[in-house]
């Protein structure tokens, strides 16, 4: 077998290294070269405890978008999400914060509504369900309705 000359070997090495880096950043790091078409949508929750930026937004368990930012506004949590475009969202759709697994991640689950009116891009989802506070529920269960 002919021995590879220096230039070819270096070229192959650089290509292999860049491929590895590309796999890491595109596949695992979710680097987006071309910003795919997304539609922003806002929802306000009374608590988003445990939800992180970059968390998934799901409809029927299928990932359709991501949480872009979480901010506090008037003592409420304002969550901005980016959804894949082409998913009509009814005005009475419900956004709820759910937990995957026992110590799993928090994610936003969207439940479609029945209204004919759609939420425009950048609009607000009115119906929201906050993160479930497991300790609070257990406390209520043990101490009775302590509210």
């Amino acid at each position: 077998m002919k021995r590879l000359n220096v230039e070819t070997a270096v070229g192959l090495f650089v290509i292999a290294g860049i491929l590895c880096l590309a796999w890491l950043s595109v596949k695992l790091g979710k680097l987006e070269f071309l910003e795919s078409d997304t539609v922003p949508v806002i929802a306000e929750f009374s608590s988003v405890s445990g939800l992180k930026e970059g968390a998934a937004v799901e409809i029927a368990g299928v990932e359709v978008g991501k949480v872009v930012s979480i901010a506090e506004k008037d003592y409420k949590a304002r969550v901005t999400m980016k959804l894949r475009s082409g998913i009509p969202l009814q005005e009475d759709a419900i956004a709820s914060i759910r937990t995957r697994g026992l110590i799993g991640d928090r994610y936003v689950s969207l439940t479609p509504g029945a209204s004919d009116r759609r939420i425009p891009p950048g609009g607000r989802i009115r119906e929201t369900e906050s993160a479930v506070d497991l300790e609070g529920i257990l406390g209520q269960f043990i101490h009775g309705s302590a509210k």
């Binding site: 880096l21 890491l24 950043s25 596949k27 695992l28 790091g29 979710k30 680097l31 970059g54 998934a56 991640d105």
Partner: peptide, 15 residues
């Protein structure tokens, strides 16, 4: 799980 937990910042920090 790997794809869900690795962020671009992890990759760029490592780099």
């Amino acid at each position: 799980q790997m794809e869900a937990s690795v962020m671009l910042k992890d990759v760029s920090d490592g780099l």
